[in-house]
Nucleic acid binder design. Structure first.
Length: 1047
RNA sequence: GCCGAAGUGGCGGAAUGGCAGACGCACCGGAUUCAAAAUCCGGCGAGGUUCACCCCUCGUGUGGGUUCGAGUCCCACCUUCGGCACCA
């Protein structure tokens, strides 16, 4: 009984592919290449998840298809194997992370082979392999050896002209005053300019656990394990200067064949904004001595005497100095530099805010305010980023007592500190324009600061603000005849704000003169706005026309911005500036299981670091992780590697300098940033990648993976790639030409009814349950109880309990998770239905990019399809596996050829579009049709096997062998279709009357339009709809449709 | 709040502006079988009408619009999901 036996067939062909190295790939300049890549998996101890095979099957189909179309396909797989879980396992059990990792990789590899993916396994790599991380360290040295020259113009090997380039540190110009100070000063100067540099940055230190935590281990300010409080403590860190590349990372997205949504996500993350930097001199802090500016003495700063200082002369001195000397690279002491995207609102500045960490805070604070300022700064420093944003929406801040001078009009502006201004963005200081910025508006309202409108709002905005007035306009119109008194009474009856009241009074006046209209209302609201913009609920932050801005009045926002930026530049008081939301990349971790840095710290005679660095040479690489047995945290924020053996930690250089090794390790991103490069040349022990292979294989033509990597991994990899590009190691500017994000596979649909937890245990309808799902709207605790599909039914748009239709239940699919116990294990699916069924099911579920819920019965459906395909060839009632007698060497009939060629066309085009679900349904249709034939031409079935092979490769190879072939079909030419065979000799044309189908006619393919129209009119049902009407127009779409328009 | 994606039968989904619901699941009926499983054949949006075939009305989140014709294009809105969130 040779039923379709997936297990037998699949293990047979997996062994065959392994033995014959069917998918081994070599570079071949004579053939076109295709590089198809899956996102690098982390080999977790849980093994493969059903989400993995989704993207992997998609790429595998493309690869198998492309090989058959003559492409030289690179399709590799490897392991992103450094990372926390293996290390945590080591802390718990003492098992070395390398051991755990090796075991997990073994399991993953076995599972992937079980699914029949056509990887070139000879290229397998793991980031944890010293022969791999040797080159990760080498790339770090390249980053360390590079500085970014933003003004360098050049044309790359891609033929595109660029401004800005990563250049060798040896080419960094050293300013004369630095050079004068000697070699140490020069080295420190260079270190400040490298793409890899050191910086004090906060880490998540958890005193209770005695360890530093990664960001993903911190949830809501508490440790993920144990829920202990986490502190932010500053620690010396390695940073990568990704911000230098922010502009190119943004602009070079344009040419990539990536989903627009992912591009938008990256642009959003980079967050480029254009504006201006403007300098405000602090009142009383500018003294001109002998033509040179000099800060007033610190004593006068502490004891300023505003009464004796003529602040206009402060500003005059400052302004004339700037007029002569221009805008300096860094502001002078006593000058606050702000960044703004709205320089057109400079006339509306009513206060300024420094971030609590700003360097000028101390100097500017007056004695009277010092205590308050110090307390506030202390509080701000204890708050985590989270406290500063989510939890604390209320604006807080303290006045410093100091003032600065507005450069456009000489106004004296109070300077505050507040934590809504971030030290790490822009210049860490802002000019506040409460009338036209939402945050400033809230702050000003909280602290009673003036709000001065300098942009005339649009009518649309005024209308919106007066939405209630506009709504009532209709009533006003109707009541106007009744007289102003009645309007007045009506106004009095409303719960009005001062704004409304004033607006209404205006309306009332208007009604006495003419018919009221929206224009009157807008006029009223405008009047109120100009009178006091602070009365409104929100600030006007859109573009408008300048008011209260001196000579600039009447300019549009855009014109104003351009003009004032130019004017400020001329006076040396400001300049155009660009800022990014993107921050530099914190590149070090305090962990064991990561790549060691190839860096040494010089020590002085006391054994203390001098701050000077040395690197290992490329020849010293790899720097192997030290052997350690104890992976317990150090108990301090010190990295775990500081517990490494002395011999690993220390050495003495040839010149006698004592050196200590860097004890931070690299983050998991490091290895996954460049693995796609190594796959091109995985065993090269001379270079990270040979230029010939790079030129042949790069870029990756198709990259498929989950959207969770849409921002970080893809941005980091692009950044490294661009540095390697600038340094001449790769010749294409972008790593991934085409990117596709697979959607998430959710658990099976669940129905859940809510029940109260008290003894009554009554059901509660879904709308009565709070969004948290824990209590009802009136506060009773509830719990969700799973219902089976036959306990519920659909009523209208909602699902309800069959027994109690008043109770609406929750019907949805959830993300698969261990805690929810809805995880589907691919091993089980393969055991029950086979790898081919799993592959086809995952592709048949829906569009690749969409999220979709798992369905076990759906797997059974495609399994049945494979059984049908099998029985197309094999008589399952025979004793042996042999071709069915229905399969014969006869020519295919016209109908059969048409079906076959339609299928070839559809499947080919669908694979090209990555529309696998529709390709599969076309093959199902073919199978259904051919099942009904008692005689099945071998030639047609042969082509069908080839079409099926990318989707169900095991079954296809087996059938191919049954058809009498001795070689694998992996490199058989892909079937082609003959357009002439697609056409039917008789067409069926739907006939519409006024756009509604009223009948169908069958006509010969070559029938004339006239014949078709006549036949259409004669069709019985059509004729009945035409009766008594006049045809005013006849629309005929050739071979598609006929439509009569009648009256 | 901002940005992005998506709303089509009981379910997953299909449809270059041209017959809405291909294909699959579930369900129903029939054949085969001693019986069942498996398999094969057929039906399957809602309502009306009809012995039946037919035919009619409604129907792609809501409301408008463009068009001979809209799931598809335009405008406004609602809901769900994902991302960002004091970025000046």
């Amino acid at each position: 009984m040779p039923r379709y036996d997936a297990r037998r067939i699949e293990s047979k062909w997996q062994a065959f592919w392994d033995e014959h190295q069917t998918f081994r790939t070599e570079m071949d300049p004579a053939r076109p290449k295709l590089y198809v890549l899956d996102m690098f998996p982390y080999p977790s101890g849980d093994g493969l998840h059903v989400g993995h095979p989704e993207g992997y099957t998609a790429t595998d189909i493309v690869c198998r298809f492309s090989r058959m179309r003559g492409k030289n396909v690179l399709h590799p797989m490897g392991w992103d194997a450094f990372g926390l879980p293996a290390e945590e396992h080591a802390v718990k059990t003492g098992t070395h992370p390398a051991v755990t990792t090796k075991k997990n990789i073994g399991r993953f590899r076995e599972q992937l082979k079980m699914l029949g993916f056509s990887y070139d396994w000879s290229r397998e790599i793991s980031t944890t392999d010293p022969e791999y991380y040797r080159w990760t360290q080498w790339i770090f040295l390249e980053l360390f050896d590079t500085w970014y020259d933003p003004d360098f113009t050049w044309t790359g090997p891609d033929g595109k002209a660029r401004t800005g380039k990563g250049r060798p540190i040896s080419e960094l110009p050293i300013p004369a005053d630095v050079a004068e100070q000697g070699e140490v000063a020069v080295r420190r100067y260079q270190d400040r300019h490298r793409l890899a540099y050191q910086h004090e940055a906060p880490v998540n230190w958890c005193p209770k656990l005695g360890t530093v935590l990664a960001n993903e281990e911190v949830i809501d300010g508490k440790s993920e394990v144990g829920g202990h409080p986490v502190e932010r403590v500053p620690l010396r860190q390695w940073m990568l200067r990704i911000t230098a590349y922010a502009d190119r990372l943004g602009s070079e997205l344009d040419d990539l064949a990536w989903p627009d949504s992912i591009k938008a996500l990256q642009r959003n993350w980079i967050g480029r904004s254009e504006g201006a930097e403007v300098d405000f001199v602090v009142d009383g802090r500018w003294l001109k001595v002998d033509g040179q500016n000099k800060e007033t003495s610190s004593s006068s700063a502490i004891n300023p005497q505003p009464s004796t200082i003529d602040h206009s002369s402060t500003f005059d001195a400052f302004a004339s100095h700037r007029e002569a000397n221009g805008f300096p690279l860094d502001p002078e002491p006593g000058v606050i530099r702000v960044y703004t995207t709205r320089p057109d609102t400079l006339f509306g500045v009513t206060y300024m805010v420094l971030s609590p960490e700003h360097a000028l805070v101390d100097a500017i604070t007056t004695p009277g305010q010092r205590a308050a300022v110090d307390i506030y700064r202390k509080q701000a420093s204890l708050k985590s980023d989270l406290d500063r944003t989510d939890l604390a929406k209320e604006k807080t801040g303290v006045f410093t007592g100091g003032y600065a001078i507005n450069p456009v009009n000489g106004d004296r502006i109070p300077v505050w500190i507040a934590d809504y201004v971030l030290a790490s963005y822009g210049t860490g200081a802002i000019m506040a324009v409460p009338a036209h910025d939402e945050r400033d508006f809230e702050f000003a309202k909280t602290f009673g600061l003036p709000i001065k409108a300098v942009v005339h709002p649009t009518d649309d905005w005024l209308k919106q603000q007066s939405a209630k007035l506009v709504d009532w306009l209709g009533d006003v119109k109707h009541t106007v005849e009744a007289g102003a008194a009645r309007v007045r009474g009506w106004i009095e009856s409303l719960p009005v704000s001062p704004l409304l009241k004033q607006g209404m009074e205006f309306v009332e006046k208007a009604t006495q003169q003419a018919k009221p209209s929206v224009d009157y209302l807008v006029g009223a609201v405008r009047q109120v706005y100009l009178d006091n913009a602070g009365q409104f609920a929100t600030a006007f932050t859109e573009l408008g026309t300048a008011i209260n801005s001196g000579l600039y009045d009447g300019l549009t926002t855009l014109d104003f911005k351009a003009k004032i930026t130019a004017d400020l530049t001329k006076k040396g008081l400001g300049r155009k500036a660009v800022n990014y939301r993107l921050r530099d990349w914190l590149f070090s971790r305090q962990r064991y299981w990561g790549e060691p840095f190839p860096i040494w710290h010089e020590l002085d005679s006391q054994g203390q670091p001098t701050g000077l660095l040395r690197t290992d040479s490329a020849a010293d690489l790899p720097i192997i992780l030290p052997e350690m047995e104890d992976f317990k945290p150090t108990g301090t924020p010190e990295p775990l590697l500081s517990k490494a053996p002395e011999s690993w930690l220390y050495k003495t250089a040839a010149d006698g300098t004592k050196l200590k090794r860097e004890t931070n390790s690299m983050p998991q991103w490091a290895g996954s940033c460049w693995y796609y490069l190594r796959f091109c040349d995985p065993r090269n022990d001379q270079e990270f990648l040979s230029p010939a292979k790079a030129n042949y294989w790069l870029p990756v033509d198709l990259y498929i993976g989950g959207a969770e990597h849409a921002v970080l991994h893809l941005l980091y990899a692009r950044f490294w790639h661009k540095v390697l590009f600038d340094r001449g190691h790769v010749s294409v500017p972008e790593p991934f030409g085409r990117l596709v994000n697979q959607g998430m596979i959710l658990g099976e649909m669940e129905f859940r009814a809510y029940q109260t937890t008290d003894e009554s245990g009554g059901y509660v309808s879904l709308p009565d349950v709070k969004e948290s799902g824990e209590t009802t709207r009136d506060g009773r605790a509830v719990t969700a109880v799973k219902q089976t599909a036959d306990q519920v039914e659909k009523r209208g748009d909602t699902w309800v309990l069959k027994d109690n239709p008043a109770i609406v239940v929750d019907a949805r699919s959830f993300k698969m998770s261990k805690s929810r116990r809805n995880v589907v294990n691919p091993d089980d699916v393969v055991k029950d239905y086979g790898a081919d069924a799993l592959r086809i099911y995952e592709m048949f579920m829906g569009p690749l990019e969409a999220s979709k819920p798992w369905s076990t019965t759906g797997v059974e459906g495609v399994y049945r399809f494979l059984g049908r395909a099998w029985r197309l060839f094999v008589d399952d009632k025979a004793d042996d596996v042999a071709l069915s007698s229905a399969v014969q060497d006869v020519p295919a009939t016209e109908d059969q050829l048409r079906i076959l060629h339609k299928t070839i066309k559809a499947v080919t085009e669908d694979i090209e579009k990555l529309s696998f679900n529709t390709a599969i349904s076309r093959m199902m249709e073919f199978t259904n049709e051919f099942t009904s034939y008692d005689v099945r031409p071998k030639s047609a079935l042969r082509d069908f096997v080839l079409l099926l092979s990318p989707f169900a490769p095991h079954l296809a190879e087996e059938l191919w062998e049954l058809l009498g072939h001795s070689r694998s079909l992996a490199y058989e030419p892909w079937p082609t279709y003959d357009p002439a065979l697609l056409e039917e000799s008789v067409l069926e044309i739907p006939v519409q009357v006024n756009g509604k189908v009223r009948g169908k006619i069958r006509v010969a393919k070559d029938a004339t339009k006239e014949t078709i129209i006549t036949l259409g009119q004669e069709e019985t049902n059509v004729a009945s709809h035409l009766e008594g009407k006049t045809i005013v127009k006849t629309v005929y779409v050739p071979e598609k449709l006929l439509n009569f328009v009648v009256k």
